[in-house]
Simulated scan of single mutants.
Amino acid sequence: MELTSTNYLPSYTVGVDAYKAVPEVTRRFGSTAVIIGGKTAMEKAAPRLLAALKGTGVTVTDQIWYGGQPRHSVAEKLAADPRVQAADMVFGMGGGRAIDETKEIAELAGKPLFTFPTVASNCAPVTAIGVFYKEDGSVDNYFLPKEPPIHSFIDTKVISESPDDYFWAGIGDALSKQPEVELSSRDLDLPHTPLMGRALAVSCERPLFDYSAKALEDKRTRTSSYELEQVILDIIVSTGLVSNMTTNLGAEKGAYYFNSSTAHAFYNAYTGIGEAAERHLHGEVVSFGVLVLKAFDDKPEELKKFAALNVCLGLPTTLAELECPESALAGIVERAQKTNEWGRAPYGFSPERFEQAILDADAYGRALAAGDAAAQAAALSAVHAHRCVEPTPRKL
């Protein structure tokens, strides 16, 4: 007997007046909401939301800081908070970490969750996955709610006024979606939902190459534009839909995960290097992880292409830009093997090969920074020389 599966897809409102849609969208879920989010996010966006709700019958009963880092202990405490228990709905407001925290809070409290991203730095506002961290700042594990947030209200004015670096890093994070999904699901006969996710992942890459430079320029000058909106939607919505369709780790039967691979294995392991990791944003590190993926996957021309975009946008192409000495690689490789992303490729995923891919990506980046054409060619040749030649048979 086949088990029944239920798939949830998020919905969203985008635009400069996105918050005006809140009363209509939330009408079936109640009339009171508690905002949980980042301090700065609530300071900047909550007044705009309250103004949009005035006289509509939807009331915000309180505003609560999420704690600064998504941690399970904090989520459990806030879920039991009388202010949360008394509200009909949870409004998660802020960046990815604040919103990820609200996913567990809402699930534990049994409340519907609506998200209000104040930055375009990742796809957290629409996904059914949350990244949680340990006290030392390193990645702990993933939280998998039963469903994604019901609706996300993406106010482009709020996002246009947010710190530029978060948007810049969001582009870096989004660049990983198509390569990681393709690599982790390659050569597999996928069932319906992850097959849709893989098809949609292809649509994530082109807008970033076509529009990111102009979008970043417009973001920095606070200029509304088609390019800026397209990249915001790519970072939050397109990649988020892919994430939901390619993640099903909690299934009793037929569990799968194709949402990430080598780039996030690098990021998750990198978070354990110490204080330096705290000075670099998630997507910033992931963007270098994409170069590692291209070296790992024997795609020298793709490595060249993605590195060129990184240079154009000011994203890192070397370990030095991430304050990561070669002496830290042994620890990174060790921690990477404990991540959910380890082994998600159709060939040998050995520690030695992973470390070599990091070195190869860094070597090309250093040659690129030096403007040394001969060294660039040599680095690309080394990528091919270090390739995995023995495929590893896999099945879903």
Rank of each mutant, 00 (worst) to 15 (best):
Y19T: 06
K214C: 10
D372R: 04
G170P: 13
T271I: 01
F116P: 09
V139M: 13
L208M: 15
Q356S: 07
Y226G: 06
P70N: 09
L319T: 03
A367E: 04
T221K: 06
L188R: 07
D372H: 05
T127R: 12
L113N: 02
F349N: 01
L329E: 04
F114S: 10
F266G: 00
I235L: 02
K395Q: 11
A120I: 05
H280F: 08
L329P: 01
A382L: 09
P23T: 00
P351A: 11
N310E: 02
T318V: 00
I36R: 03
G15W: 06
R186E: 13
A377G: 11
Y211G: 07
E104A: 10
T193P: 08
S212Y: 05
T339S: 01
Y166N: 08
S162W: 11
D297L: 11
M196H: 13
Y142R: 12
F288W: 09
L208H: 11
L368N: 08
A336N: 02
P117M: 07
T223W: 12
F114L: 09
A52C: 05
V242G: 01
G254Y: 13
P10Y: 08
G254W: 12
N244G: 06
N141A: 15
S162R: 10
V14C: 10
A75G: 08
A370P: 02
E390V: 15
V242W: 06
T193M: 14
F114P: 05
A370R: 07
A357F: 04
G365H: 04
L9A: 13
R206L: 12
F258D: 06
F209L: 13
A269C: 02
R222C: 03
Q337K: 05
R394F: 11
G68S: 00
R27K: 09
Q337T: 03
G130Q: 05
G38W: 01
P23A: 14
A382I: 02
K214L: 13
Q178N: 14
R222K: 08
D17C: 13
T102E: 09
A106R: 11
V158H: 11
D372N: 02
W342C: 03
V292C: 00
Q69Y: 14
Y133M: 12
P70E: 06
E104K: 09
G343R: 07
G57V: 12
R71C: 08
V181E: 07
A367N: 04
H384K: 08
R279V: 09
A201M: 07
I35M: 10
A199D: 15
L183H: 14
T223F: 10
A363Q: 11
R222W: 05
N310I: 01
F167G: 02
A374S: 09
L53F: 06
G274N: 00
P346S: 11
A375I: 06
E76L: 13
G274Q: 03
F288K: 03
I154N: 01
W342D: 01
D187A: 12
P191K: 08
E301D: 15
I235F: 05
E390T: 15
S121F: 11
T61C: 03
